[in-house]
Design a protein around this nucleic acid. Structure first.
Length: 436
DNA sequence: CAGGCTTTGTA
DNA sequence: ACAAAGCCT
């Protein structure tokens, strides 16, 4: 391997169970650890949304801050650069005389294209990429990726049948390779302006892992996981998983440890089951490529929905005719997090009651959710809209029934003021525009 | 080809 | 448990 290596960090902001770091620790090299903040994350995209809203931005900065502290303790550092990633990295590679680049493989198509462009710009640099975002290695899957089952259940049955080993990468106690640059990295400003349930970073993730598995919560997960509210009703690993502050393998391993030390029941199995959904969406995203973002998804016909700006704005701002949906959107806007149940209700409302183009909903969740994950977000929206991996034609949740079942005494709706901006009709018709 | 029986997939 | 799709008669 080369002598001067650059590690381009993306959604792998951890040192434990990080095969790239484990490998680098054994190398004789000088190492430059870099994260690039892309200004496009804070500008409007095709859907007039920003890929990074304020909550997600704060979680990212917290995650970078914690990682930088840990790397400094190990005689290394993290350089956070700003700009278009290919341009910035190309310059860095030239300035620092880099001859090898290592990074994790990403299931997102933009990220894959960025890496391909960087490779094309730097023909003399050796690139080594590692798949470390999934539970399984692609070579351990009992089928070729292009033969990935079309639905979750056959996927689950196939992978469960072969019992794929899930092993963690150990990080040697030795220091990491020496930094390339003598100048210290710019310290990261710690952002803690917004109150969040989850604090970004690898240490915070480990603290939460210990919290979640130290009590009895895992053994009741299946009975509480559908609640609209309540920190301990679900595992809450999603945001740390999304930024790679913790790996899915570490969570999976912790479940199995818990099963050995305490109890293995339907609930503990269900945590692993949900990690398999995440896994399925990862491989699905990689398999279907750009159609993950297309209006008709993997189907041949487009949904019978359109884009109506006022309706979409009402949905975003919690001003629909549905108090439960309004409460959900208010919580999302205030905190950057909503429960799985809440996501399904809000998404179904956008597609079915409001007849809106599902991609706008997906882009809004991408902006607002601190745990945004390209595969899970776009895959789930396609599923709700009936253009993805669900064998049925989408999912229509009956909002009245969902309210009766999950918020019968309006505790959640009142907490998030779902009645504050409830409109009585879908569209505000201006009488002046109405021909008499 | 309506109607019932079986299979499949479910967060 | 249940609903939709596929299959059979």
């Amino acid at each position: 391997m080369s002598k001067r290596i650059l590690y381009w960090l993306q959604n792998d902001l951890r040192i434990d169970d990080n095969p790239i770091f484990s490998d680098l620790a054994l190398q004789q090299c000088a190492l430059d650890i870099v994260f690039v903040i892309n200004p496009h994350w804070f500008r409007n995209n095709n859907y007039q949304q920003k890929p990074y809203g304020v909550h997600k931005q704060q979680f990212l900065m917290q995650s970078l801050f914690e990682l930088q502290q840990v790397l400094i303790e190990r005689g290394q550092t993290l350089h956070v650069l700003e700009g278009e990633p290919v341009t910035v990295l190309k310059q860095r590679i030239a300035d620092q005389h880099i001859d090898g680049v290592v990074c994790a493989e990403h299931v997102g198509i933009y990220e894959q294209r960025q890496l391909a462009r960087l490779k094309a710009h730097c023909p003399h640099v050796i690139f080594k990429t590692t798949q470390q975002d999934t539970l399984f290695k692609q070579s351990d899957l009992p089928f070729d990726l292009n033969e990935l089952p079309k639905n979750f259940t056959p996927f689950r049955k196939k992978v469960e049948a072969v019992n794929i080993p899930i092993t963690l990468s150990a990080l040697p106690k030795t220091l990491l390779p020496k930094p390339i640059t003598l100048c210290a990295a710019k310290p990261i400003e710690s952002h803690n302006n917004l109150e969040h349930l989850m604090h970004g970073g690898l240490n915070s993730a480990q603290t939460h892992l210990e919290h979640y598995f130290s009590g009895l919560l895992p053994s009741t997960y299946k009975t509480t996981r559908n609640e609209l509210d309540g920190f301990n009703n679900t595992t809450k690993f999603s945001a740390w998983l999304a930024f790679g502050c913790i790996s899915a393998r570490q969570v999976y391993n912790a479940v199995e440890q818990y099963e050995q030390n305490h109890i293995a029941n339907e609930s503990t199995y269900w945590i692993k089951f949900e990690l398999l959904w995440r896994e399925y969406f990862k491989w699905h995203a990689l398999n279907v490529g750009s159609s993950l973002f297309s209006f008709k998804g993997q189907k041949h016909t487009k949904p019978l929905t359109t884009f109506i700006p006022n309706r979409f704005a009402a949905w975003c701002n919690g001003a629909t005719p549905y108090p439960l949906v309004n409460a959900i959107m208010n919580e999302l806007n205030a905190t950057g997090y909503i429960s799985n149940r809440a996501r399904q209700i809000a998404a179904s409302c956008l597609v079915n009651e409001l007849s809106l183009d599902w991609r706008y909903g997906a882009a809004y969740f991408e902006q607002q959710l601190i745990d945004y994950d390209v595969a899970a977000n776009w895959g789930n929206w396609q599923y709700i809209a009936g253009v993805g991996v669900d064998p049925r034609g989408g999912r229509h949740f009956n909002i009245e029934k969902q309210t009766l079942q999950f918020d019968p005494h309006a505790v959640y709706t009142n907490k998030w003021q779902g009645n504050k901006n409830t409109s009585t009709q879908l569209d505000n018709v201006n009488e002046v525009d109405w021909p008499i």
